[in-house]
Design a protein around this nucleic acid. Structure first.
Length: 921
RNA sequence: GCGGAUGUGGCGAAAUUGGUAGACGCACUAGACUUAGGAUCUAGCGCCGCGAGGCAUGGGGGUUCGAGUCCCUCCAUCCGCACCA
């Protein structure tokens, strides 16, 4: 028996690949480039589980395939090595995060290498490496030194802004800047002292510092971005999050809202991701209208998408955080309003969300004047209006908006019907866009859609407001009050932020004794000795997790360059990522921020592309499949799954390694749970069946399947193919090891086919047509499937081919050679071994992918099912080259068909090539 | 509520895009070889029916000679977003 010793084979080739640097890639201008990249992982302490490599395997198959097809393939890997878990661990143990991170990375690399990935490890990047974050800091500075010119619709150097301020002031400048930026003349600017100038410029810089309402997580001691907060809890750790106002570094991503939206049109990304990003950016069209306040110079600006409902406005509502609240509250309502605002402020996000259904609010005592009817309408404060969206105030149209309706009902405010199709009930508003407008002066009789346009025109004509596009997207908070991140390369001189000069980058993380905030409440960096620049204190917060990951794909092109973030030459050759694979959970985080930075770098002419990834695929999540044994309550007795309903039982998690095809290894279980050592087990059919449930893969649920175990049992080639065999790469599915034997058997059969009595055995005979057909079908299928990434059917095709060759007892060189090449992207080790046994000195990686030939795929004859009117079938044999007419004639001449037709005339005979024949009567 | 996706045997899934539904694998059943089998080989395996045959791609309807695939409608599940004016 010629055994398939996968352990030896895999170890041998992995060593060989490493020693010969087989996958090292250079800028080779003679060959077309192909850049395929995985989302780099955060190296957690738990190591990889079987879910992680799913995407890596797929990308490796494509990378290897493209290499065989003659592409110069860049297929790198790195580590997103700054992050909270390492810091939390450091707080607990005192161990420097760099040390734990280093250890984790080494473990990850070992695991990744054992899977036989063809990464060019010489290009590895780590975001926590000063050589890397030097350039993250450099980009930060470039963003800081830029402003967004809405007229040219791009980021420009801050110098161009200064120039314009000096000559004309800012009246003519159309920029994305702070809302409260005053209009100044060139004289004003010239009269500013240095500090005033700097503070003024901060209102324009794309990285700016401002008092912002942030998501503050007290337990983590840091702010979090919107995408790091899920349902009012921190994504990492699940701690409560509250709103807090504090000075923060932010990035003006909102300047790019429109381009981030339109850019989606030209990239081949999953629709789900694009839709999520569109939703997050949240562009809506409408108008901003001013409602003057009665007996006052003040006014309330509101944004609305439904100007057609303007005559239905019966009250105004301000967000509790709105500045207008204090200005408009009359003295007799002061106390009530104050109490309400204070309560609203102190509520956590979580509380606010759970209380969505509770209507609450207070009257300010002020009245606004309806811009058209001049009627008095009361101004209220309520927390259903968000400070962060629009103007922080709304015109309430209770007949057309459910929230306004609920509020009006609760406080007994009037409700005006403004549409003849509106169906109002006691509890429901009707936001219909059908019907005709009524009770609305000049809008009467118009369908709402037309009334929207007319309304905006009228508003602009009467100078009551203007057409307005509004976005949900908020600027990105950039500071984190944590240690383990890139230091922000800024110091403060006389209260003014200043950039650390370029030649002093990287500004390296200082050593500190403890990874906690200082007693004064400053971030951990406050503990560092001499964290100063000429006695001026450096910024104490660090960059967020998304900083490094927003540009790392460019660094892979030229990872060791210490003069530039990436050389022009490398950028020119590699340009962008052809194929990016990673999880969909980054839709509104990494995948949005990285597009933002790319567009910025494009504006500043650092790179030549404004989208960095042409094609993106989201690999599915692999969930865990937990197994349970059912213990009878109050007894030391376990019952098999089918019997559990006869008893009062509690499910107990069983380590999945003790379960095979849902059958429990009872001896193993007794060791796993010592308290079950003497337990009684009630079996079904002499076996003990476990129940199962789909849960997240985690240690505590004993459902983690470790790739190392599977590799040592079946080998990396089997694991790679099995993960692909499970189903489409994009699909999420629970892990199930049950089918892996089938794939393993296939590889063993493939090996055995070319071995006899333990020796490699190959025949030099010419292959038969039948054998060639098997081969060429595989080649064709792999070509098609890799392009479409439907790798599961490729694995099936290989299995069928090996089964067929096996029954043909075909061990011919002419078959094995091309077969080994086409299988090598999937199972590189075994193919490399067979390739070298065939006498090749060079690696199979250097081979050319075989081309399939149609002539081998053709059949001599086809069995056509024939039906009459789609009913009844009989199979007839036709030669493959028979002309359509011949087939028709033969069909009609056939005795059985004649019997069916029973004298009727055939209207037509439909022939679908190689498929089916249908006679229509 | 809004948006996106998915629904095919006991299970994971195929289906050349409108043409023999369930390839391939797992599980299961029977048989062979074995002292033994969690090994190997052979055969069977959607459901109902002894059978001929009938029924089957979430449900209902439609287009078509022909529908898993196209159209309408309803249902279920999963994932985003969510007081966004």
């Amino acid at each position: 028996m010629a055994d398939y010793h996968f352990q030896e084979i895999e170890k041998k080739w992995q060593k060989h690949w490493k020693e010969t640097e087989l996958y090292k890639v250079n800028n080779d201008y003679d060959r077309p480039k192909y850049y395929i990249m995985d989302m780099f992982p955060y190296p957690s302490g738990a190591g990889l589980h079987v879910g992680h490599p799913l995407g890596y395997i797929a990308s490796d198959i494509v990378a290897r395939f493209k290499r065989l097809k003659g592409f110069n393939v860049l297929h790198p890997m790195g580590f997103d090595s700054f992050g909270l878990p390492a810091e939390q661990y450091a707080i607990q143990t005192g161990q420097h995060p760099a040390t734990t991170t280093e250890n984790n990375i080494n473990r990850y690399k070992e695991q990744l290498k054992s899977l036989g990935f063809s990464y060019d490890w010489t290009r590895e990047v780590r975001t926590s490496d000063p050589k890397f974050y030097k350039w993250t800091q450099w980009i930060f500075q470039l963003i800081y030194n830029s402003w967004y010119n809405n007229d040219s619709d791009k980021a420009e150097p801050i110098e161009s802004l200064i120039e314009r301020l000096e000559t004309n002031g800012n009246a003519e400048i159309n920029a994305s800047c702070d809302e409260d930026t005053p209009t100044i003349s060139s004289e004003d600017w010239k009269n500013f002292d240095e500090k005033e100038k700097q503070l003024f410029l901060l209102k324009y810089r794309l990285t700016y510092q401002a008092n912002t309402t942030v998501n503050w997580c007290p337990a983590l001691g840091t702010v979090l971005s919107n995408d790091e907060v899920k349902d009012g809890f921190s994504e990492r750790g699940g701690y409560p999050v509250i709103k807090k106002t504090m000075p923060q570094w932010s990035m003006r991503i909102t300047a790019y809202a429109d381009r981030l939206l339109s850019g989606l049109e030209k990239i081949d990304w999953p629709e789900a991701i694009k839709e999520t990003q569109r939703n997050w950016i949240g562009k809506s069209f409408g108008a901003e209208i001013d409602f003057p306040i009665e007996d006052s110079e003040k006014k309330i600006s509101v944004f609305t998408t439904r100007i057609d409902t303007i005559f239905g406005v019966t009250f105004m509502v301000l967000a509790p955080e709105s500045e207008l609240v204090s200005q408009l509250t009359t003295s007799e309502h002061h106390e009530e309003v104050n109490t309400y605002v204070e309560t609203a402020k102190n509520r956590s996000e979580r509380e606010r969300m759970t209380e969505v259904k509770n209507v609450s609010g207070v009257f300010t005592g002020s009245y606004a004047i309806h811009p058209f009817t001049k009627e008095k309408i009361p101004v209220w404060v309520a927390d259903y209006v968000l400070a962060g969206y629009g103007t922080g105030a709304v015109m309430a149209v209770p007949s057309g908006d459910q929230r306004d309706f609920d509020f009006a009902k609760h406080f007994d405010l009037p409700i005006t019907k403004i549409n003849d199709a509106q169906q109002l009930t006691e509890t429901e508003a009707d936001p219909t866009k059908e019907g005709k407008i009524i009770n609305s002066d000049f809008l009467n009789g118009l369908p709402p859609i037309e009334a929207m346009e007319k309304g905006i025109e009228e508003v602009e004509k009467r100078k009551l407001g203007k057409r307005k596009v509004n976005f949900k997207l908020r600027d990105a908070i950039f500071g984190r009050q944590r240690y383990w991140g890139e230091p922000i390369p800024i110091y403060y001189e006389d209260g003014i932020p200043k950039l650390v000069s370029l030649n002093q980058l990287p500004l390296e993380l200082p050593k500190i004794d403890e990874y906690l905030p200082t007693e004064e409440g400053d971030p951990p960096l406050g503990r560092a000795k001499d964290w100063t620049h000429d006695r001026n204190l450096y910024e104490l917060s660090t960059m967020p997790g998304w900083a490094g990951s927003s540009w790392y794909f460019f660094r892979y092109m030229d990872p060791d360059n210490d003069q530039e973030f990436c050389s022009k030459e490398a950028l020119d050759y590699w340009k962008d990522v052809d194929f990016y694979i990673g999880g969909s959970e980054h839709a509104t985080g990494h995948l949005l921020y990285s597009r933002f930075w790319t567009k910025f770098l494009y504006d500043r002419e650092v790179i030549e592309v404004d989208e960095y990834a042409k094609k993106l695929v989201n690999q599915g999540m692999i969930q865990g499949r937990s197994s349970f044994a059912y213990r009878v309550n109050g007894e030391n007795k376990y019952v098999s799954k089918g019997l559990k309903d006869q008893f009062d039982t509690t499910p107990i998690h069983v380590d999945v390694s003790l379960v095979r095809n849902d059958v429990l290894d009872i001896e193993g279980f007794k060791k796993f749970r010592p308290d079950a050592k003497d337990a009684e087990f009630m079996l079904e059919d002499d076996r003990f069946f476990c129940g199962s449930e789909i849960e997240k893969m985690s240690k505590s649920k004993f459902n983690v399947v470790n790739p190392d175990d599977l590799i040592s049992k079946y080998g990396a080639d089997t694991l790679r193919m099995y993960e692909m065999f499970l189903g489409p790469v994009e699909a999420s599915k629970p892990w199930n090891t049950n089918g892996i034997e089938g794939v393993f058997k296939f590889l063993r059969k493939f090996w055995t086919l070319f071995h006899q009595d333990g020796n490699f055995s190959i025949s030099d005979e010419n292959p038969s047509n039948e054998e060639l057909k098997v081969l060429h079908r595989v080649i064709q299928k792999v070509e098609d499937d890799v392009e479409k990434l439907s790798l599961n059917t490729s694995v099936s095709t290989f299995m069928i081919a090996v089964n067929e060759l096996s029954s043909l007892k075909c061990n011919k060189r002419a078959i094995l050679e091309p077969l080994a090449i086409s299988l090598s992207p999937f199972a590189p080790h075994i193919c490399e071994e067979l390739w070298s046994l065939l006498g090749n000195n060079d690696s199979v990686v250097k081979a050319d992918f075989p081309t399939y030939e149609e002539k081998y795929l053709q059949e001599d004859s086809f069995e056509y099912p024939v039906s009459v009117n789609g009913k009844m079938r009989v199979k007839l044999n036709f030669p493959v080259d028979a002309e359509k007419a011949t087939i028709e004639q033969e069909v009609l001449a056939n005795e059985t068909i004649q019997k069916w037709l029973d004298g009727r005339q055939a209207k037509k005979v439909i022939v679908v090539p190689k498929k089916i024949v249908n006679v229509v009567v």
